[in-house]
Amino acid sequence: MHEDPLRVYGGLAGRRQFLRAGMTGLLVISLPRWAVARPSLEHAIRTFTGGADVLDGRIRLDLPPLVENGNAVGITVAAEAPMTADDYVRRIAVFNEKNPEANVAIFHLGPRTGRATVSTRIRLATSQVVVAVAEMSDGSFWSSRASAIVTLAACIEDLS
């Protein structure tokens, strides 16, 4: 079992000695949050699909085209599927173009869900495109895109 290095050096003065000893052989680089690259919308979708092709259709994304306040934007995603044991929606994912995180939500469904429809509220940092992708039980992926103009932005950060 290893001893706690701060205990070995003991007290505040010991902590300083420990940090000085550690700094001689260790270089720690800490980047500000804005310096870490945000994955692109396409990269986030590719990660969700495992690189599979995404087709247009079989899914509808309802997003208001003009949003007064980006802090709580209501969306509804509905996929065309009979929701039987042989043909159903496995997952529905929502992605955005400009928020600090590209992934918004992933909903897991099954044949006993009844309807492949989900609704929620999301935050939108600024005017942007939102994409919904549905994974079907046969392994195919279908998508729909919608644009929203946001007059009062949420997630206020440097998005450049």
Score class of each variant (00 low, 15 high):
101 E>I: 09
60 R>F: 05
74 G>I: 04
58 R>I: 01
104 V>G: 13
17 Q>Y: 01
79 A>G: 08
26 L>E: 09
62 D>N: 07
74 G>M: 07
104 V>N: 11
59 I>Y: 00
92 I>L: 13
104 V>W: 06
65 P>F: 01
56 D>W: 00
39 P>H: 04
78 A>E: 11
32 P>F: 06
85 A>E: 14
69 N>M: 05
46 R>Q: 13
50 G>M: 12
34 W>D: 09
73 V>Q: 04
60 R>W: 01
92 I>H: 11
85 A>W: 06
75 I>C: 06
101 E>G: 08
105 A>S: 15
41 L>C: 03
98 K>A: 11
55 L>F: 06
74 G>S: 14
38 R>N: 07
58 R>M: 08
106 I>C: 15
20 R>A: 09
76 T>F: 00
52 A>D: 11
37 A>M: 05
69 N>R: 11
98 K>W: 05
24 T>M: 09
30 S>V: 15
58 R>W: 01
94 V>L: 14
63 L>P: 10
107 F>S: 10
88 Y>G: 08
56 D>H: 04
107 F>V: 12
80 E>A: 13
90 R>L: 10
99 N>C: 07
19 L>E: 12
36 V>P: 01
102 A>P: 15
73 V>L: 03
71 N>L: 08
75 I>L: 14
16 R>C: 05
23 M>D: 11
55 L>Y: 00
107 F>N: 08
51 G>W: 08
107 F>A: 14
35 A>E: 10
38 R>M: 02
108 H>T: 15
54 V>L: 06
81 A>Q: 07
16 R>G: 14
71 N>Q: 07
